[in-house]
Design a protein around this nucleic acid. Structure first.
Length: 217
DNA sequence: GCGACAG
DNA sequence: ATCTTGTCGC
C-alpha cells in the first residue's frame, strides 16, 4: 500500500465536500458501525450494520447486517480504507436510503479534510455527519458539563467541527461535517437524536452488532 | 527529534 | 476496536 497515493485520494475527496445544507428534509437517520472477529489480525472477518431510525420517534425502521473480510490495517488518518468497503455495501443494499448517515469517526475534522464520514458521503453522494467518541485532530476548550453545550474544534484558525456534550456530566462527542450539511445542522441533528451519550442510530447499530457477533462468531 | 494518533 | 462481572448511577 502506498500511503502517499492514498493521501492524494483524500485531498481530492476534500475538494468535493459540501459544508452546507443540501437536502430537502430529514425524516430518517441511519447509523453505521463495524465490528471485527479478531482486531489484532489482518485480514480478518468483520460485520457492518446499518440501523435507520425515524427522526421523531427515534425508533428503528430498518436494520441490516453484512459480513465480509477486511484486508487493510488500522492506520490513524486512513481509517476509510479499512472500513469503507463494508459500509458501501450496506448503502447499496438498502432499498430505502436514510436521509442522512451518522458515521463512526471524523468528517472534515481530519488532517487532509476527508475523514471516513466525508469520504463515505462524497462516494455515495449522500448527506453524512462524522460522530466520533474521541478526537483525531484539532484543538478545543472543554464545553460546560450541561447537555447541549459545545465548543468549536479548530486548527490554525479554521473550524473543523464541534465537541458536543450530549448528556449532563458525561464525556462529550466529536461532531463534524461529513458531506452536504452545515456544522450547525449537524450539531442540532446529533443532539435531537441523542438520549444517551451516543446518538441512537449509532448506538443501535453498535448494539445490533454485539448480538450478531455472538451468534455468528 | 518528540508526541499524538477516528476505529 | 476487543475481552468481560459485577457494579454504580439516573
Amino acid at each position: 500500500m502506498d500511503l502517499e497515493e492514498l493521501k492524494r485520494i483524500q485531498q481530492e475527496c476534500a475538494k468535493k465536500v459540501v459544508q452546507k445544507d443540501d437536502f430537502q428534509e430529514i425524516r430518517t437517520v441511519g447509523g453505521i458501525d463495524l465490528t471485527f472477529q479478531d482486531i489484532r489480525n489482518n485480514p480478518t472477518k468483520a460485520w457492518a450494520s446499518l440501523v435507520v431510525i425515524d427522526i421523531n420517534t427515534l425508533k428503528p425502521i430498518y436494520e441490516d447486517v453484512v459480513e465480509g473480510i477486511v484486508d487493510f490495517p488500522y492506520i490513524p488518518t486512513f481509517l476509510a480504507f479499512r472500513e469503507l468497503p463494508l459500509m458501501l455495501s450496506l448503502h447499496q443494499r438498502a432499498k430505502k436510503k436514510p436521509d442522512v448517515y451518522f458515521i463512526d469517526g471524523q468528517g472534515v475534522a481530519h488532517p487532509r479534510g476527508c475523514g471516513i464520514a466525508s469520504h463515505f458521503g462524497v462516494i455515495t453522494q449522500s448527506v453524512s455527519v462524522g460522530v466520533a467518541k474521541t478526537k483525531l485532530f484539532g484543538y478545543y476548550k472543554e464545553p460546560s458539563t450541561k447537555r447541549g453545550s459545545w465548543s468549536y474544534l479548530t486548527y490554525r484558525g479554521n473550524i473543523l467541527g464541534a465537541v458536543l456534550r450530549t448528556r449532563d456530566d458525561t464525556e462529550p462527542i466529536y461532531v463534524s461535517v461529513g458531506h452536504r450539511i452545515s456544522l450547525k445542522t449537524a450539531i442540532e441533528l446529533v443532539l435531537k437524536t441523542s438520549i444517551y451519550r451516543i446518538p441512537e442510530p449509532t448506538r443501535l447499530a453498535h448494539n445490533l452488532l454485539q448480538k450478531v457477533r455472538k451468534k455468528l462468531s
